[in-house]
């Protein structure tokens, strides 16, 4: 079989287009990794469970004021939803009652942002993961992908939004702290550069070996998160998932995505070759029969 000029150009064209468009893959997240991210350190041993952060968050983000009767009680897991971006939960642990604040983890390499086909979910250079309504088409793939089940969707709205903590992105830009960190009376939540927060967390563990459980949750979980946790007890006692992988979640789809350009180059050429090869066979067979 021989490839004539026309077929050659066909294959050349397909290959060229693929190579030209295939480059787009390079624009995956990770470009910002040179930038130093902001983060938050939440120290469960300092938290008094006052819910001041819940109120501050609702006020700063224009969400309904939390219900005063809805207190954290051990055994009941309160969940963030489309009307509240953060919640404090109580747990009865091996070291007595402990509190834990839940909110978006602001992953270094967020699954939600990698999942978003419109880049509505977006990891900013500051390190916050934000949602941009003008881009979002409401497919909820971010919710499917997020290992922490953070993004919430307004199911009862004709113009639904995705609701999640954005680390008070606008406030950071103005040089202020996130509302919850600013309003925490016991300084259980502190805001700063992620690298510095990790150093503080390590120092606390080092200086108080009896107080802390020797692990910083979020240092490596899901490839590292912007929200870091310290606790007196193992983290599964505080309802955190401890079985999450240490590498980032978008890494799980990289293999597939990188195969796409190769398939786009190889398949058309292979198919055309097969078509040319079998065309002759068929012809011969027909001649044999007739």
């Amino acid at each position: 079989m021989s490839i004539d000029r026309r077929d050659f150009f066909k294959v050349l064209g397909v290959t060229g287009v693929t190579l030209a468009t295939g480059k787009r893959l390079g624009a995956a997240p990770g470009m910002e990794s040179r930038q130093e991210f902001y983060g938050m350190l939440y120290d469960s041993t300092r938290c008094a469970g006052c819910q001041g952060c819940e109120f501050a968050c609702a006020e700063a983000n224009g969400l309904p004021t939390p219900d005063l009767q809805d207190l954290p009680v051990a055994g009941i897991e309160r969940k963030a939803n489309e009307t509240r971006r953060t919640v404090i939960n109580a747990y009865s642990t091996s070291k007595g009652e402990m509190y834990l604040k839940r909110q978006c983890m602001h992953c270094n390499d967020p699954a939600c942002a990698a999942a978003c086909l419109t880049r509505a979910m977006y990891k900013t250079h500051d390190g916050s993961v934000i949602w941009r309504g003008d881009k979002c088409m409401g497919c909820r793939y971010c919710m499917v992908s997020c290992p922490f089940d953070v993004p919430k969707f307004e199911y009862f709205s004709a113009n639904p939004k995705i609701e999640k903590c954005d680390m008070c992105y606008e406030r950071i830009k103005e040089g202020k702290m996130p509302a919850c960190a600013e309003n925490c009376p016991t300084e259980a939540i502190i805001f700063g550069k992620r690298r510095e927060l990790l150093a503080i967390a390590r120092k606390r563990i080092h200086d108080n070996p009896g107080t802390y459980y020797d692990h910083i949750y979020g240092e490596h979980e899901a490839g590292g998160t912007g929200l870091l946790y310290l606790s007196a007890v193992p983290f599964e006692e505080l309802g955190l998932k401890t079985t999450l992988q240490k590498s980032s979640y978008p890494a799980l789809t990289k293999g597939f995505l990188y195969a796409v350009p190769s398939i786009f180059v190889l398949w058309p050429a292979l198919l055309l070759g097969l078509q040319q090869a079998t065309k002759d066979n068929n012809h011969n067979e027909e001649e044999d029969h007739e």
Partner: peptide, 12 residues
């Protein structure tokens, strides 16, 4: 093309 989420499988 005002928002290409090329790292997304759903985009593909």
């Amino acid at each position: 093309g005002n928002s290409f989420g090329t790292s997304s499988v759903l985009f593909l």
